[in-house]
Simulated assay, not measured.
Amino acid sequence: MARFVVVGGGIVGLAVAHRLMTDRPGDSVTVLEKESGWAAHQTGHNSGVIHAGVYYKPGSLKATLCKAGSASMKEFCAEHGLSYDVCGKLIVATDEAELPRLHDLHQRSVANGLPVKLIGADEAREYEPHVAAVAALHVASTGIVDFGAVCRKLAELLAAGGAELRTGTEVTGVTNRGNEVVVTTTGGEVVADVLINCAGLHADRIARLSGVSTPVRIIPFRGEYYELAPQRRDLVRGLIYPVPDPQFPFLGVHLTKMIDGSVHAGPNAVLATAREGYSWGRINLRDVWDELSYRGLWALGRKHYRYGLTEVARSLSKKRFAASLARLVPELTPADIVPAGAGVRAQAILPDGGLVDDFLIVEADRQVHVLNAPSPAATSSLEIARHIVSRLPVAQAG
């Protein structure tokens, strides 16, 4: 019997554990999560979108695993009675200058084999009567779900299948000892044959604890949300996105119908002062030092400081935030939106300031480290898990 330890109880970690239990039923699976519950960070603070795979370079892990994951996530929800809605989305060009980027996105979507359609302003308003658009890309397969509910179901299935689920257990050290991996935690030692690191915002730290040399550093970016006041929810039927700037992994503030019927607006993207920094007031000195001492962040800042300043200004001004939304739906005013929390994106950055734009999965001796898995990782989670587990040599853990 092989022993697997998965670090991280977000959707990727739980999906990996579930895939291990499914594909290797005779083996032992332990999940370690430092928080008291599942999906406490990235998974539990996102916009709940089942992405189609529009934005990603054809042939990349993001493109292939997102498309497959969109289908498998819907199948999982249907099988287990979890609510989801394939509502589709519009990516809208609000002026003529954005049309070339919209057409490029259409070509990329077609290359990725997605059911998309370029439409004009009149047809766009058939989907979203209040939208402002000179043209739009309709993405029929985009959906919405509560990824927290997906995690709770995965944990339930893991418990029923005999996996050991340990919340409130933080990893403090990792040592290879012969053919074993010894994981030191706040709850004692756990000995495994294989460690799989799905620690999200702390994945690079777990890798370094494990003796794995990686040049990337996780830099946290906070995404702040508003939501439409209940009496204004009728302004949005589904999902409305701007045409993204290809220089950045962030999609711009958008309007997202949630599975509970609310409509979220956002997120923006500001540098966070803690890896779990959900507000300006949350500051972690260790995290701040990690950011400021990393030359990749300074290189990134030199390249994109104007973008960063714009995001900070939007964070500090409800009026600016509402103005960004009004480019998509002109009827929206500051009075129509109320604060709705925030999430933090774990973005891996290279020493030259480059943003790692694909999923990054590093394999080492008896270890696997998921070092970059921001959006669309939740959509792709079941397929990320399949990808990782399929690459584990049987002999490695036997």
Rank of each mutant, 00 (worst) to 15 (best):
H18C: 04
L20T: 02
T22M: 08
R24Q: 04
R24W: 01
E33Q: 12
G37V: 02
A40M: 08
H45I: 07
H45C: 10
N46R: 00
G53E: 06
L61F: 09
A63W: 03
C66E: 07
K67G: 15
F76G: 00
A78T: 15
H80K: 03
G81D: 13
G81R: 12
L82H: 03
K89I: 06
V92H: 03
T94D: 10
P100H: 11
P100R: 12
P100T: 10
L105F: 14
S109M: 03
V110L: 15
A111G: 07
I119P: 06
Y127I: 07
E128Y: 03
H130I: 05
A135Q: 08
H138Q: 04
V139A: 15
T142R: 00
T142N: 09
D146P: 05
F147C: 00
F147G: 00
A149I: 03
K153M: 04
L158W: 04
L165W: 02
G168S: 06
T169S: 14
E170M: 15
V181M: 06
V181W: 01
V183G: 12
V183E: 11
T186P: 09
T186S: 15
V190G: 06
A192Y: 02
V194E: 10
V194Y: 11
L195G: 06
N197Q: 13
N197T: 12
N197G: 11
C198K: 00
I206L: 15
I206W: 13
A207D: 10
A207H: 09
L209Q: 05
I218M: 04
G223K: 02
L228I: 08
A229N: 06
Q231N: 09
D234L: 04
L235Y: 15
L239P: 10
H264D: 01
A269M: 07
V270R: 05
A274E: 07
Y278G: 13
N284A: 13
L285W: 13
R286M: 06
V288F: 11
V288Q: 08
L292E: 00
G296P: 02
W298F: 10
W298N: 11
A299W: 07
K303I: 05
H304K: 12
Y305S: 13
Y307H: 13
A313D: 12
R320N: 11
S324M: 14
A326V: 07
R327F: 05
L332S: 06
T333D: 05
A335Y: 02
P339R: 11
G343Y: 04
G343N: 03
R345Y: 06
A346W: 01
P351H: 09
G354S: 14
V356T: 09
E363H: 12
A364R: 03
D365C: 09
V368M: 00
S375P: 01
P376N: 08
S380L: 02
A385N: 10
R386W: 00
I388F: 01
R391L: 08
P393A: 13
A395I: 02
A395M: 01
G398W: 03
